[in-house]
Nucleic acid binder design. Structure first.
Lengths: 226, 226
DNA sequence: CCGGCACTTCGTCCCGGGCCGAAGCGTGCC
DNA sequence: GGCACGCTTCGGCCCGGGACGAAGTGCCGG
């Protein structure tokens, strides 16, 4: 059996609000400096430093130095999945979401979930692909159809090596329906960001489409969700 | 964003070794009494009682009474998935598994992972279905082929309603390769248990095949893993 | 070379939570 | 009805961990 002590150690690391906040801040897949993470956690740099050391030592974070800056990122997709599971449970229907400011609305609208699109846009993208017959998706798994694979290839979206068509759904905590995760979800997200169709909102996990980008995404994917 | 406080609360609940042990004991999908869980956690019934109350109040466990016994079970598949994610991380390659007694070997051999088969048997079952052309499986998703669906239907295995062929992989922490989870994984496990091909080992998550069962599973699935 | 910035380390304080013994409540059996 | 069992509640003890101020280290730009 997986070590109970080790499981409890990992869970306990995430069970402290400041560390949890810092980990969530990293869920957009980027790297943040220790100072930025201290702010995300609402604690002083000294406290953040101790917390980051523990998270890194436990293998949940990876750190790299650039000059005097220490950049931290999630150690891998397994850590991201764990946080996804925690977020899904934290947002379970039994506990209705607290709807706060416009920032929360922006995250519900469109955000990145580690490496793929989430929020209403992410779910709408999955729905549009399904409607076009390009994707089959349910709670357990997803599969790109041949037509879908050909279409994405024509767009220049990298699908899986060897033409693998299977893809992973991720339960969207804000919509309670699946969006597209895994390698394909990541490829679609990267494509949209690289083309400039989507841009990250500074200091947030939210993303936003330019008018041009919204139009191009409508053309490319049948995405009409505004 | 999912509430940080709520995420930390859930993680903290699992971050205490006694509670983690009790939750893991429930990962075979069954219900256990408060006394059994106290033993699983290595604590007195008084301590267990307080812990179980907190887990239930937080929505991680569901409790039902039968006479003077209180039966507890995992509250649902999302809780199981969270524990799967935690177990996968706890067993990450960076920390080689401690190989202890025969009990650990039995779990590595064959066990249930909440509602589906895991361990060498679970991975071998997935491999056998893939080898027979009945299943496609990678880390992101899985799909039953038409031939596979027909075969399982002939065996009396309930596949998804509406003939849905997509299925979810689950990363096996002991084998580091995927076994079959989701609705199809659960249906296969249930089928094998109901037919008596597999039997649960009392007081454990391990399962064991009778000689007859092993032969029938070899015939049914091409499962030759002994 | 020096000052400033990013971050870490050290020391100290305070509080929450895990533990169990004792007592109490509800259920079931004889 | 009484006794035993399963489990809960209460009270108290002890310890680990989160917080920050002060000081220290390393890097970078002028």
């Amino acid at each position: 059996m997986a070590s109970t002590a080790r499981l409890a150690e990992i869970a306990a690391l995430l069970g402290e609000p400041a560390r949890a906040a810092m980990m969530q801040a990293l869920m957009d897949g980027r790297a943040l400096t220790a100072g930025e993470l201290a702010q995300a956690g609402g604690i002083t740099p000294q406290t953040a430093s101790a917390h980051l050391a523990r998270l890194t030592q436990a293998g949940l974070l990876a750190m790299e130095r650039q000059g005097r800056h220490r950049y931290h990122r999630l150690a891998g997709t397994e850590v991201a999945r764990l946080l996804e599971s925690l977020m899904a449970l934290a947002e379970a229907p039994a506990r209705p979401a607290i709807r706060t400011g416009p920032r929360e609305a922006a995250l519900r609208h469109a955000r990145t979930c580690y490496d793929h699109l989430a929020g209403r846009m992410g779910v709408a993208l999955a729905d549009a692909l399904v409607a076009r017959g390009h994707l089959e998706l349910d709670h357990d798994a997803g599969r790109l159809t041949e037509a879908g694979a050909a279409h994405l290839l024509a767009l220049g979206v990298e699908t899986a090596p060897g033409g693998r068509l299977l893809c992973r759904p991720c339960l969207d905590w804000s919509e309670r329906r699946p969006h597209l995760a895994g390698r394909l979800g990541a490829a679609l997200c990267r494509h949209c960001l690289e083309r400039g169709w989507l841009r990250r909102v500074p200091g947030s996990r939210a993303v936003r489409a330019s008018p041009e980008g919204a139009r191009l995404m409508r053309d490319a994917f049948g995405l009409d969700w505004a």
